[in-house]
């Protein structure tokens, strides 16, 4: 019986490249949470002149698919400019790994999200966001796609628990169709805030749960 993972995945799982932490990183990101079973941190060292990624490291709490994808995206991103690295897709990462089992897709997407979030973090920190577009419901929806619904391991949008989004005077209101005493309520609230907070024109986030 073949292993569910390709030889390439196993190789990166056994010997992950660029693993660890950069203490004086120029940018970093943390995606996922212990509750959803996978978490990845990405650290960047960027050359200010050329905006090239000089060094990249990652840490992973997760399954083989998450570790291997973390490893491959650091390989793909190293030496590239931020603009180039931004466009590395999950598909490219997955192909470079010789494919991933469909059930493991979300754990590997998380690693790609980690890279993008770290680049975004660099741009936000270094004033590289050229024009500040006002936050729209679409932007919020996109960010909520990166918050896992730990019940099923898929994001909040795809699992249709986002009931409503409102934006008014810098206050973002998100209504989640789960009871407030749900075991994941606190965790989901925290993750939503984490994803939306960095937006330049957001001052306050209110997450509401149904009764």
């Amino acid at each position: 019986m073949p292993l569910p993972y390709s030889e390439k995945v196993m190789e990166h799982f056994r010997q992950p490249r660029n693993v660890g932490r950069i203490e004086d990183a120029d940018a970093k990101s943390i995606e996922g949470s212990p509750a959803c079973g996978d978490m990845v941190a990405v650290y960047l060292k960027v050359d200010r002149e050329s905006l090239r990624i000089d060094d990249i490291k990652f840490e992973s709490y997760g399954c083989a698919s998450n570790i291997a994808t973390g490893s491959i995206i650091t390989e793909l991103a190293k030496g590239k400019t931020l603009e180039e690295a931004k466009h590395i897709t999950w598909k490219q990462a997955s192909e470079a790994l010789g494919g991933l089992p469909p059930i493991k897709t979300h754990c590997s997407i998380l690693a790609v999200d980690g890279l993008r979030a770290a680049i975004e973090n660099y741009e936000e920190r270094h004033g590289l966001i050229r024009e500040h577009k006002p936050t729209t419901i679409e932007v919020i929806r996109k960010r909520l796609k990166r918050v896992m619904n730990p019940m099923v391991g898929l994001d909040l949008v795809r699992t249709k628990v986002v009931k409503d989004i409102e934006i008014a005077d810098g206050v973002v209101r998100v209504a989640i169709d789960l009871p407030a005493d749900h075991q994941f309520a606190a965790n989901i609230r925290e993750e939503i805030s984490e994803k939306i907070q960095p937006l330049w024109d957001v001052q306050k986030i209110v997450v509401e749960f149904t009764e």
Binding site: P16, V19, G20, R21, I30, P34, M39, V40, A41, E59, S60, Y61, I67
Partner: peptide, 8 residues
């Protein structure tokens, strides 16, 4: 644990 972002 060495490669985990948790518990550092």
């Amino acid at each position: 644990r060495e490669i985990s972002p948790l518990g550092k």
